[in-house]
Amino acid sequence: MLSREPVLQEISPDLFTLAGYDQEAAERTGYSDYSYWGATLGKFLQSKTAVVALIVLGVLLIFTVIQPYLPGQRDPNVINLNQETFRQLRNVRPGADFWFGTNSIGQDLWARVWRGTRTSLMIALLVATWNVTLGIIVGAIWGYVRRLDRVLTEIYNVLDNIPTTIVMTLLAYMLRPSISTMIIAMCALGWVSVSRFVRTQVIIIRDREYNLASRCLGTPTHRIITKNVLPYLVSVIMLRFALAVPMAIGSEVFLTYIGLGLPLQIPSLGNLINEGRQIMMIPAMRYQLIFPAIMVSLITISFYIIGNAFSDAADPRNHT
């Protein structure tokens, strides 16, 4: 200490000048043009496949909604008759009158495909919303509230052991075939895997310092979950939702295939494919299988690609 004193005395205040406040310089260091959603969008748009899938899906969705209101559309359940002979126009091949042809009892396949897409998409979106919402709620509580962890984990271990397909099949077998039966069957256990996934994520975020600080300040649990934890999960939640849609459509096709589908007067993609399957051995009538199959593939592939691309883009580690 003593030896330093002489040195200090040698430095005179004249050697220093006050640096003035320079607003430009301050902004240059403090400013960042990074915004989470901007970066996410930018990254997403870089993937050409994802953009194509988004456009395809957008066009399909819009057209599915407006199709019944367009002029010159036929009712999907009306059996079309020949105006002169009053015979049913069965299995008419695709042409100017019937763009996708007619089916084996003379219904317009174009109208049926779009109505079916609407039914299937509606079921899929409802199921996906339910499974993801319930999964998030249960998962967030499960991961955040320690006292419940043991109980919920034990319940999960039992539920997880039950094959989902079997529960779905059994429920659809027991209830009367209808749209709500189908939705109930798919919703019964679909949320379990989402909740487990959310729980793991929540546990990772739960004990970060800012949450500790929040807790010390007396923030109520529900507020910490909704404000501090869930925003971090947007990307994974969106991915789960996007993947739940193809899965629900797949389940619908599956249930229809094993004979537990919707009644025939409610066209759905599963129904149409099943109808097409029954006549597919006749090459001239194969279009009745091909059109619904193309529609199913377009929708499921688009959702799958968009979901994956979005989840990659929303991961901050991929932002540059």
Binding site: P246, I249, G250, F254, Y257, I273, L289, S297, I301, N308
Partner: peptide, 17 residues
């Protein structure tokens, strides 16, 4: 992507066909 997204029933049918 194709196999995971498209329902199995659909491509099974086309393979058989």
């Amino acid at each position: 992507v194709f196999i995971n997204a498209v329902p199995a029933a659909v491509y099974f049918l086309f393979i058989q066909l």
